[in-house]
Nucleic acid binder design. Sequence first.
DNA 1: ATGGTAGCTGCGCTA
Length: 259
Amino acid sequence: MRIATFNINGVKARLPVVLDWLGEAAPDVALLQEIKSTDEAFPRGEIEDLGYRVETHGQKGFNGVAILSKLPLEDVRRGLPGDAGDEQARWIEASVGGALPVRVVGLYLPNGNPAPGPKFDYKLDWMARMRARVAELLALEEPLVLAGDYNVIPQREDAARPEKWAEDALFLPESRAAFRRLLHAGLTEAFRTVEPGPGHYTFWDYQAGAWEKGNGIRIDHALLSPQAADLLRDCRIEAALRGRDKPSDHVPLWLELAV
DNA sequence: ATGGTAGCTGCGCTA
């Protein structure tokens, strides 16, 4: 089973890119972030025509996540528990059918800038809520994949110019510590089990020619339960998509499970 | 040290 995550930065502006990518890469499951669309406005027909079931958790103008799947989806849940007043659409879960069901979570973790401030507080609170939900999901002892835009640069080698990010919410010690807590809770970062070295990025800013200069950061991640980590065959970043016409500022990350 | 770009929306906010 191949599972991909892709922050598309607006489904309306990115639909041709997304349709081309789905046709070429043909992941079994695609987790999309920043659809920037309501559920009603999401172009589900074009995607269903490619053989995908579509489950969205949308919001007008900002955020929004979706799960696309060639396999049946069960027990779809929308929203990260822990704060009934949180109206931002950043979390969606489902179980992907098959011989061995896999629980998948698509997430768009808050950016948190400027830090310090209320947005940074929201980010850290969101990460604490995520850890509580992760504990519940890990207790099920099933294959579990949590993938998306984490908005966290885990280590210095995950940025081409780490000194530029020293004061940024994506790289501040509190953000990185909260990310490490997820790992300490029992999750494994898929990409780092396959590629331990530096120079691998998933995001290049639209500004200042970041792509042309190779000035990227690695902020899109896939975290695995032990049961999923045991099934991991491969994990790759599709960096070439950043060089196409009308690209997202993120590129897809995919992993293959032996299911 | 600053400004640089993109998307959604309807001109400022988010990233």
